[in-house]
Nucleic acid binder design. Structure first.
Length: 436
DNA sequence: TAAGATGATTCTGG
DNA sequence: CCAGAATCATCTTA
């Protein structure tokens, strides 16, 4: 066991050699010996001593540092998931900026599209949106990668530095780890900024995209025609079913919600000013009638060759549920279709045709038909009523309203005779029908 | 360029 | 949630 000044390296005191020869010479020699001894001890074992002391000192200092360090920033070590960061992440994922590469953002485009409702001619805008989105995505990923790389580089650098410094000052691995965490936190806050600005960019892009959609475009003439045809041929109940809407949407190359919008607007505007729409109604009534007549003729031909003549053997025409009950009625229908004694024509595009035809020349009375010949009017009505199975209760219904509008609410309520402004329409036709 | 038309949105009531 | 009503914003037309 080496000693140093009477103290062992482990700190236990030892007895120094006591000189007992001569008082002076002995003392001198003793001191010299001791000094020599000390010198020898120091020279020989300083390194060894250091090697033994240092870890002890190191751990003590680290412990002390640890304690103070923990008290200072112990609370920061917990890393609760930042709600804002989570929101940003979710949004980026939803927008297709982060997440899988292919198809990313398609959902967002679809959502944006559905929210506004767009026609088929917007694929260019779609691709534009997608291109811009992928641009944002690319920038985002490049930046993210850059940040991550920088973060890693810096972390390694700091770690190396700390390891290096740990030779000369008390730095525990735990502290290095903590330092790494701090660096990561700093970088993640930068990342958050990146995510935030990316989100902003996406929002801006999206709002521009949506604004572009807001710029309404009139439907094509063809689409309006199809919609009007449907509307006027279902005037008593212009509420297309979901299937009908889908069909119309398909035909018109618009969305179902646009069809709904259109019908909503149309119902309101028609109801507000029937007179204004009368001409249009007549036009479409006639138009539909022609197609209907053609279809009926075709059906007659068909029925004559096949002659099923069963009441339930209906046939489908376009979107409407036309049903012919008997071959006899089909013939009646054909015979009477274009033979109104008043000179007006009554064509069975559908049951609602009567409503729009009512204002054609003022002579047509949809249900009562007082001034047309009883035979003619009745036969027409009979033929059509018998031939066409309408769900709106046209057939033989004395309460049938020419505009499908009565005083009971819904489509049948809002129009009072006074609101019928058309001079040719004849307010009493409405009135008489509804009051009957 | 004003007026009207029209598609979309928002609010409200059932 | 849906339809009606009011309203907005844009497009079309004279």
């Amino acid at each position: 066991m080496q000693t140093l000044g009477g103290v062992t390296l482990t700190g236990h005191p030892v007895a120094l050699p006591v000189p007992h020869d001569g008082p002076d010479a002995r003392n001198k020699q003793d001191i010299g010996d001791i000094l020599h001894q000390i010198m020898t001890i120091t020279d020989q074992s300083l390194d060894e001593a250091q090697a033994k002391m240092k870890p002890a000192l190191f751990s003590v200092l680290c412990e002390i540092k640890e304690k103070t360090g923990l008290s200072i920033r112990g609370s920061q070590d917990e890393d609760p998931p930042d709600p804002q960061l989570m929101r940003l992440d979710n949004m980026l994922l939803a927008e297709g900026v982060s997440g899988p590469e292919k198809g990313g953002g398609a959902a967002a485009v679809a959502a944006a599209t559905a929210a506004v409702g767009v026609g088929a001619d917007n694929s260019i805008e779609h691709s534009d949106y997608r291109a811009k989105l992928s641009q944002i995505r690319q920038i985002y990923h490049t930046e993210l990668e850059k940040y991550e790389q920088a973060c890693n580089e810096f972390t390694t650098h700091v770690m190396n530095l700390l390891r290096e410094q740990s030779r000369t000052r008390p730095i525990s691995p735990k502290e290095i780890e903590r330092m790494v965490n701090i660096i990561h936190r700093k970088f993640s806050s930068i990342q958050m900024q990146l995510k935030q600005s990316t989100c902003e960019a996406v929002m801006i892009l999206r709002s521009r995209f949506l604004d572009a959609r807001r710029k309404r475009r009139n439907f094509s003439k063809q689409a309006t025609e199809i919609l009007n045809e449907y509307f006027y041929s279902h005037l008593s109940n212009p509420y297309p079913s979901e299937e009908a809407k889908e069909e119309l949407a398909k035909k018109c190359a618009i969305t179902v919600s646009q069809v709904s919008n259109w019908f909503g607007n149309k119902r309101i505007r028609y109801k507000k000013n029937i007179g204004k729409f009368q001409e249009e109604a007549n036009l479409y009534a006639a138009k539909t009638a022609v197609t209907a007549a053609q279809a009926v003729a075709a059906a007659v031909q068909n029925s004559q060759t096949n002659s099923p003549a069963t009441p339930s053997s209906g046939f489908q025409m376009k979107d409407e549920d036309f049903q012919l009950d008997a071959a006899e009625d089909k013939n009646n229908l054909l015979n009477n279709m274009f033979t109104g004694s008043s000179g007006s024509y009554s064509l069975p595009g559908s049951g609602d045709m009567f409503m729009s035809m009512s204002g054609l020349n003022g002579s047509y009375q949809p249900t009562q038909v007082p001034n047309t010949g009883q035979t003619q009017g009745d036969s027409i009505r009979h033929a059509i009523g018998q031939s066409l199975g309408y769900s709106d209760g046209l057939r033989g219904n004395p309460l049938y309203s020419p505009h499908g509008l009565n005083g009971n609410g819904g489509w049948h309520d809002a129009v009072t005779p006074s609101s019928v402004t058309s001079p040719i329409e004849g307010a009493n036709s409405v009135h008489s029908d509804t009051s009957n």
